[in-house]
């Protein structure tokens, strides 16, 4: 029983992280119809920026300064600001060229982008796994169940990020413009929404959220340049489960995947952690075949967007 409870707690914490991690992917897909295969690499990029700030590695491996060393969770707003600018620029230069083109074009272009980002990270920061140090360490013990403090902070941050995004999309003028652009591009244009600006803004915001996931993951799991693709695959699975841009769906899908993975990790001895990615994949295929519209409605249902 204790073991089960522990697996459940770990699963919920992992699941909330997954939900926050995949939001950017899902909203970009929902709004501009681009499947961003470089998603996991943007998470890693966020993680590496956090690592640079945390360790004061201005030139990774060459120049280390003591005065910079920041608490990773306090560095979050800075990382998000930097990555917003990066995302905005990437959308303007590259992604804008593939919006509205067939999916394969955007898949291949973002795949190229993912190769470039991961190898740029390898060249600048080396392929060694990196981990940041946080002062929010330790754990609370409740009976035989352990609740790690770091992961609780991550859970809180994930909920705050999801809540803010929900509020932004539903209750601000810009957020409503983004939803309008997702629902009907022509009509949005007619009522005076600058589609290109909205797209760039959306991409910037989504990349900022994505990079925040990198910051959140960096104190608990080592980051390395090639850890991106499994995260992209999970983001894709949860999106298929949740529906495009659906926040309740993201939370439910994230929790489901997190709990399944955590249960496999605990109950399948030794090899369970390696099989977690297999669980994500099986979930993806089963959902795609049985319910291609996802379990929850979103910005727009997948099957209408793709005419499946």
């Amino acid at each position: 029983m204790d073991q089960f409870l522990q697996a459940l707690i770990n699963g919920v914490m992992l699941g909330a992280f997954y939900a926050a991690m995949m939001l950017g992917f899902s909203v970009i897909w929902g709004v501009m119809g681009v499947i961003n295969l470089a998603h996991g690499e943007f998470i890693m990029l966020g993680g590496y920026i956090t690592w640079v700030l945390n360790k004061g590695q201005i030139l990774p491996g060459r120049l280390e300064v003591d005065w910079l060393k920041m608490e990773p969770f306090y560095a979050l707003p800075l990382v998000m600001a930097i990555m917003f600018v990066v995302g905005y620029a990437v959308q303007r230069v590259l992604i804008n060229r593939v919006v509205g083109k067939p999916h394969l074009v955007s898949l291949l272009v973002t795949f190229g982008l993912s190769i470039i980002i991961s190898n740029a990270l390898k060249l600048t920061c080396s392929a060694d796994p990196r981990i940041t140090e946080t002062r929010f360490g330790g754990a609370w013990n409740l009976g035989n169940v352990t609740i790690p403090v770091t992961k609780t902070v991550i859970l809180g941050l994930a909920l705050v990020i999801m809540g803010s995004l929900w509020g932004f999309l539903n209750h601000t003028r810009t957020g409503k413009s983004i939803r309008a652009a997702a629902q009907n591009k022509q009509a949005a244009r007619i009522v005076g929404i600058d589609i290109n600006k909205i797209y760039a803004l959306t991409f910037g915001i989504c990349i900022a959220i994505t990079a925040a996931a990198g910051t959140m993951i960096s104190p608990t799991q080592a980051i390395d340049p090639f850890k991106g693709p499994p995260l992209t695959l999970r983001a894709f699975s949860i999106t298929a489960l949740a529906g495009l841009g659906s926040l309740p769906g993201a939370l439910m899908g994230g929790l489901l995947l997190g709990i399944v993975e955590s249960m496999i990790g605990i109950y399948v001895s030794g090899i369970g952690t390696n099989l977690a990615i297999v669980a994500a994949f099986v979930l993806l295929v089963v959902v795609l075949i049985t319910r291609p519209q996802g379990l929850f409605g979103g910005l727009r249902p997948i099957q209408e967007a793709e005419q499946l």
Binding site: I35, L233, L288, E306
Partner: peptide, 17 residues
């Protein structure tokens, strides 16, 4: 049975799995 990008990603998943 999957169409378009779904087939592509499902096969990518098969590969990673």
């Amino acid at each position: 049975r999957l169409k378009g990008p779904y087939f592509s990603i499902a096969m990518l998943g098969t590969f990673v799995a």
